[in-house]
Simulated scan of single mutants.
Amino acid sequence: MLPRNAYRLVMLMPAVVLAYMFSSYLYHIIDYVRQTNPLSGQKYIELAFEASDAELACLRGVALPGEQLPPPGATDPIPNIVHFIFGLKNPFEHPDAGRFDFLSYLAVRSAVVSLRSSAIHLHYTYLSEPPSPDANADPMTNPWIRRLAEHITLVHHPPANSTVQYAHLSDTMRLQFLLEEGGVYMDIDAFALRPFDKLLAAPRPHDVVLGAEGGNRWGLCNAVMAARANSSFIARWLASYDHVDFSREWNYHSVLLPKEMAEEHPHEVCRLAPDAFFWPTWTWRHVDWMHEPLGREAAQYWKAEIARHGGSLFDNQLAYHSWSQMAWDRYLKHLNPSVVRSRDTRFNLLVRQFMEDDL
């Protein structure tokens, strides 16, 4: 007869094996419940909304209600320069850092196609493929970089201190680039769908263009934004990062603080409705909606809508932020050129237009 402890161990082993086998499924179920339960707050993020007159004026680059346009020639447009940041964390040592892959290529390619920018700067530390411990490894070893090379300028940055919070380093770098050069900043999981020409004409003193996040407009997100160089708003925002304990907060400085600052300095910011950059949102249901398979009739409908709107799902949509933190494991990591071309989802229909013919 087995000793009692050994017997318990034998009885426990099947449960351990089953838990291991179904761990990813269990995680999916737990994550679903966590995000969609009535207390999660996601229903407020998904609230229906209408763009205000001020938000529409910002979108169209005209004077906001109650304001006068400056005299002709008194307002220089925001420069049509695009900044991306990628590869600050070394994927050779940290595989979770990700690689510059097909979707990264599509994001940059969307700016090439849609924005017709005078320059596209890809700021990076590590881009080589396969990943290398050497920060000076040749980025042209990456086939996706080679495809983009003639359209972009690679800007190398030395490795950061190993104790740095990389997400917040990216936050401050983007503000620094906009402060020094002006232009458009886009996260590497954001896709430009139509030209930004009108909003880049935002009349002074509105030197910064930010989009609302969530139907309840709970914040102004820094994943897509535009600014003139030397903006006092950007300088103030950048200075706010000094002496911050980032281990105690995540999105305050990137989403909530800019809204607070915009309310304190409304004449410095042009605010866009959620559908300009950040709709659909990051919620479970919205991510599902973007990636659910479409039947023939639905696919034809959305193809027609995208054509009617000049490349976007909705009338006022200029970009789509794909919320990779929320969508990667469920959807984005499974995408490749064949899948994007052959499977009709709203996301695939949006980004398919940026694929080169030989992919």
Rank of each mutant, 00 (worst) to 15 (best):
S117N: 06
P130V: 08
W144Y: 15
P133L: 09
D134C: 04
E129G: 04
S118H: 00
I145T: 07
D138R: 03
H121A: 11
I120W: 02
A149M: 08
E129N: 14
I120Q: 00
Y124A: 14
Y124L: 09
D138F: 04
N136A: 05
P143F: 15
R116I: 05
R147Q: 13
P131K: 09
A135Q: 02
P130F: 01
I120S: 07
P131F: 03
N142S: 05
H123W: 15
T141M: 09
T125N: 03
N142R: 01
S132P: 04
E150C: 00
P139S: 13
P130Q: 11
R146W: 12
A135F: 01
S117L: 10
L148D: 10
P139V: 04
A135N: 12
W144E: 13
T141L: 05
L122T: 01
Y124H: 12
E129D: 15
H123D: 08
R146T: 14
A137W: 07
H121R: 08
N136T: 10
A119S: 15
S117G: 06
L122F: 02
T125G: 00
I120N: 00
E150V: 03
S118K: 06
Y126P: 01
E150N: 13
W144K: 06
M140Q: 08
P130D: 11
P143H: 11
M140R: 04
Y126E: 07
A149R: 12
P130M: 14
Y124D: 11
P131N: 01
E129Y: 15
L127H: 02
I145H: 00
P130G: 11
S118I: 00
H121F: 15
M140F: 14
M140I: 09
S132K: 03
N142Q: 06
S128T: 07
Y124M: 07
L122I: 14
Y126W: 03
L122Q: 02
L148G: 04
R116N: 12
D138S: 09
Y124C: 08
A135P: 14
L148T: 12
R116K: 15
I120M: 07
Y126A: 12
S132I: 10
H121D: 02
Y124E: 09
P131H: 01
S132L: 11
P131G: 03
S118N: 13
R146Y: 10
P143K: 03
D138A: 09
P133Q: 03
Y124R: 09
R116V: 10
P131M: 05
L127R: 09
A149L: 10
P143E: 15
H123Q: 10
E150R: 13
T125A: 01
E150P: 08
S117T: 09
M140H: 13
R146L: 14
W144M: 13
I120V: 10
I145E: 05
R147E: 14
E150I: 04
S117V: 06
S132Y: 05
P133A: 08
H121P: 05
I145D: 04
W144S: 08
I145A: 07
M140Y: 11
L148Q: 02
